[in-house]
Design a protein around this nucleic acid. Structure first.
Lengths: 339, 339
DNA sequence: GGGTCTCAGTTAATCGATTGACCGAATGGA
DNA sequence: TCCATTCGGTCAATCGATTAACTGAGACCC
């Protein structure tokens, strides 16, 4: 029981062949130099002994560790991280890779350290994930290591990246409102200067001005992207002389505040006010009453896309970098009714 | 730029010493066989070249990879996972270790595969994490690999483990109610047959029967552990002739339903009804109005404890296994008022 | 019969570090 | 003066795989 796990030598000995032959038989490499019966003998011996290759030794020789570094800026504290990681994890697993995870807590120094630590371990590539859609730079520590950006992009598009199609998602939920006949649509957005804010805001602006409404004039409110911020913004928005018949929220948390404001003002959702939002957070959107129609951030898909793109680049290091926009599907619930 | 990263040989050559000397100088090993000036020369050369050891080669030789396998049963889909992972991650990082993560989706076959995949990569030890407090078995694939259980334990306590002190947490929130003078305290619990349910329910029962109340008779309701389940349970509980003045909820999601039920019945919280709960989920407990008093699950602390215990066992493989109960601090908010 | 292929393997170098065994010079003790 | 230590290093084996180069036996062709 306390014996060491079997090595390739043991398998070779048991099958009566050299380690070279054993290696080729097990890996199917070396063309057809191994006869079928020899291969079977080796395979049988390996199974018999419960042989598992030592991938550290293999990695030393082949310079491939089948490990991917996953560097996140706040993996733990955001509810989105899970799906991103799982998407990446599943795609990696499928290809025989494993994820070596580091959370940098958003500290650039930490990021440098993290990348160094990963490179020391000879990871085959790196997925650089941010928890919120943004524009970043690739740390200089990454030299020739292949890298793919997850939920961010570089300013010059020089590195493969995947980000949510914010515009598409925003158009999607706004279309829900439009189809229900809404024209005066308010927007409640965040204070933070992030890509998501800009794109959602711009798309909303474009949408309402298409009706000849003056977006600047009256319909957007800004606050901290939490329940309370949503509440205050909604109170202001709904307190106006000509109140909007619908509100598009920056995210579900703010929508939660909008719900509360509506309740306080005696407005029923969706009877008196329709609400749509972004993120489709599982702990919020479906749990509110009525269920909130929201554009989902495709975290799982982005995670898996990033890994697959990275794997592709391992085989074709000189392939052109790709910028991918991942569609944001609309989760339709009961927060929209005819105007 | 496209040159290979420097190897130990390069450092040795640059410093005019053998690789053995370079290795010892860099690692501080070999006692005091290296003179100070030689050491400085080697260190300078390494810094100059930007030398980073190849830990794959090192791992092959030393049989230590400084990687810990983190196997979770549903890492992605639960909001708790993040803190558990980060606790483990931080503790590992601090000691120069990295986490190799696998999510098994709760599938036992997957777990076996995962462990094999990790062992092939020669990880130094394994943290087996479950997302909900439960009793498990250690998969037989783990033979001599050191392992620590995170948020679960074996029936026979043969493996080190850490779980939340459910009893302590429940007593804590119940004490909040007691201090406010509540006696008729209802309980809303989950249908699921999990350790958390048993311990919280038992503690509540013990608490209320201490007042001479008959727990069986009237005060516990069971439903699915979601908002709606909490809502229905609360409706039943509050519809009784002598309604409870306070409710202890299995978790925050159910508490959310209790809030809704109270609102519908025209009961104000905490004026007419005090509510306490368990889990202290960041997206729920502080966001509800009024803020919910809840016993926090110490996921971060458990994660870091598990890794530290694992690291300890790497040095002392024969140490007695330890079963640790991690305290659940009470997050006091505004959902409790005098009866 | 001699040369050339193919087949089915084996031998040995290699990946990049760590480390036990060894070694020459200087120091110290008797 | 001579032997034993200590000091400060070097040599070479080693971890467990992969793989380029080689080899011996038959088959095949002319």
């Amino acid at each position: 029981m306390a014996t060491r796990p079997p090595r390739l030598t043991d398998v070779a000995k048991a099958a009566g062949v050299s380690t070279a032959t054993a290696s080729m038989a097990l890996n199917g490499s070396g063309g057809n130099r191994i006869s079928t019966e020899t291969r079977d003998r080796v395979l049988a011996a390996a199974a018999e002994l419960g042989y598992r290759p030592n991938t550290v030794a293999r990695g030393l020789r082949t310079r491939r560790t089948h490990m991917i570094g996953f560097v996140g800026d706040n993996v733990a504290t955001t509810p989105f991280a899970g799906q991103m990681i799982r998407g990446a994890h599943d795609a990696a697993r499928q290809a025989g890779f494993l994820l070596l995870m580091i959370d940098t807590m958003g500290d650039p120094d930490e990021t440098g350290e993290a990348i160094a630590a990963l490179q020391e371990r000879q990871i085959d590539g790196i997925v650089l994930a941010t928890m919120y859609h943004q524009v970043t730079e690739v740390p200089k520590e990454i030299k020739s290591t292949p890298v793919v950006l997850l939920d961010s992009r570089t300013a010059d598009y020089s590195v493969s990246s995947v980000v949510p199609d914010e515009r598409g998602g925003a158009l999607g939920v706004l279309a829900e409102l439009a189809a229900a006949g809404h024209r005066r649509i308010g927007h409640v957005t965040t204070l933070e200067d992030v890509e998501a804010r800009h794109l959602r805001l711009a798309t909303w602006r474009e949408h309402v001005t298409a009706y000849g409404l003056d977006a600047d004039d009256l319909l957007a409110e800004t606050a901290e992207a939490r329940t309370h911020g949503g509440y205050e913004s909604a109170m202001r928005l709904l307190g106006r002389p000509e109140r909007p018949t619908a509100i598009f929220c920056f995210n579900d948390r703010m929508a939660m505040g909008v719900y509360r404001a509506a309740a306080e003002l005696g407005l029923s959702i969706p009877g008196d006010l329709s609400v749509v939002s972004y993120d489709d957070q599982e702990l919020i959107a479906p749990e509110l009453a009525p269920g909130l129609t929201s554009a989902a951030l495709p975290h799982y898909e982005m995670g898996s896309w990033a890994v697959n793109e990275l794997l592709r680049r391992l085989d074709e290091p000189d392939a052109e970098p790709v910028q991918h926009l991942m569609p944001c599907p609309i989760a339709r619930r009961d927060s929209v009714a005819p105007a």
